[in-house]
Design a protein around this nucleic acid. Structure first.
Lengths: 139, 139
DNA sequence: GTGTTTGCAAATCTTTTGCATGAAT
DNA sequence: ATTCATGCAAAAGATTTGCAAACAC
């Protein structure tokens, strides 16, 4: 962590939780997970801390869930599998060489690329099958 | 458009506006753009219609802006350049061959892949001072 | 006529903000 | 002592929902 910002127990706990977590939790997820250890911690503190971490470059805000932001503390760039049904996110560790020709960039200065593989996770796939089967049974 | 759903003037106007628009507008953008022609149209109608179009597969909800959904009626799959400062979106027409090994898919059934090139558009580059005051996403 | 769509208001949900208190440097 | 962080409540924005009236089929 940076020296400019203060090391509070809440910040340490949030950073630790995010680092050890593979689920790319939302602010609410983090809040709920830590409220046993920090019963007085507020949700706005979670938001404040996440914003501060983003400014320091420690945390990335993932934009893959239309309903809420998800957060990622992984140090190396990577990509994601996103379930369109339950919004589960899994990491794809591989790096892809994708680059645009200067003529394709439309004047943009590209600083990062993100690849989302959208689909259905195994749990939601079997749910789908169940629904399908039920329909067939009902006629 | 489909036969199952009814052809109302509002729906036709929304579809037409989205098809002729390169800016990937938000629901609010669409609402404002059409309220001259449809002074009584409500914002929730815009949302309802967009949801119906998504169900029919006519429109895609883009998840690139953490503050609001953006909509795209383009028929061909394509990718996007996204400005991290002003959230302008530009299309990248090229197709990229990116595929995961079965061992990398984590049990997901992939139905679509989306590549976002994140950076700064030319307008925002020329006034970098403002960038810091605006949204931050690993800027 | 029937069932869908519209439009309005109210509700819900996520995220931000203002401000007083408390804590880290 | 100064400055930054916390926590609470309230505000702000985006999206959804309930429902009666209007309209497409």
């Amino acid at each position: 962590m940076n020296k400019k910002t203060r090391r509070t127990p809440q910040k340490l706990a949030i950073f630790e939780f995010l680092s050890n977590n593979k689920n790319h939790p939302s602010a609410e997820d983090i809040y709920r997970a830590l409220s046993a250890r920090f019963p007085t911690m507020s949700l706005s503190t979670v938001y404040n801390v996440l914003k501060a971490f983003q400014r320091e470059g420690l945390v990335t805000e993932l934009i893959v869930d239309p309903e809420k932001s998800r957060y990622d503390a992984a140090p190396q760039p990577h990509h994601h599998l996103v379930c369109l049904a339950c919004r589960k996110i899994a990491d794809v560790e591989r790096d892809f060489k994708i680059d645009l020709e200067p003529s394709e960039t439309n004047g943009f200065e590209i600083v990062r690329r993100q690849i989302d593989f959208l689909g259905y996770c195994s749990a939601c796939r079997s749910d789908k099958k169940n629904i399908h089967n039920r329909r067939l049974q009902n006629g």
